[in-house]
């Protein structure tokens, strides 16, 4: 599951070539800004999945 974390990098390196545009507006935001915000939110979601499936995080706090 940790390979999911590569997706935001792809969304930048590949995606920006397609997302660099003002139209269409989504939720009132120009497309490039919507794409940016979408991936910031998805990054949090992806890191949540990574956290939940990472065996290191089982068994509570270790210090």
């Amino acid at each position: 599951m940790k390979w999911l974390a590569a997706l935001p990098f792809l969304a930048l390196v590949v995606g920006m070539f397609f997302a660099n545009r003002t139209e269409p507006y989504v939720l009132g935001l120009p497309f490039i800004l919507f794409w940016t915000v979408l991936w910031v939110v998805l990054t949090s979601v992806i890191m949540f999945i990574v956290y939940k499936t990472d065996p290191v995080n089982r068994g509570g706090d270790r210090s």
Binding site: L33, V37, V40, V41, T43, S44, M47, F48, Y51, D54, V56, N57, D61, R62, S63
Partner: peptide, 25 residues
């Protein structure tokens, strides 16, 4: 930090928290 879990937990929350910058824009 007291323990290393802290960083993994923060890595989930930080991207969302960053959206404050959207309002600065």
């Amino acid at each position: 930090a007291k323990n290393e879990q802290t960083f993994r937990r923060n890595a989930m929350v930080f991207p969302l928290y960053q959206l404050i910058l959207l309002f600065v824009f």
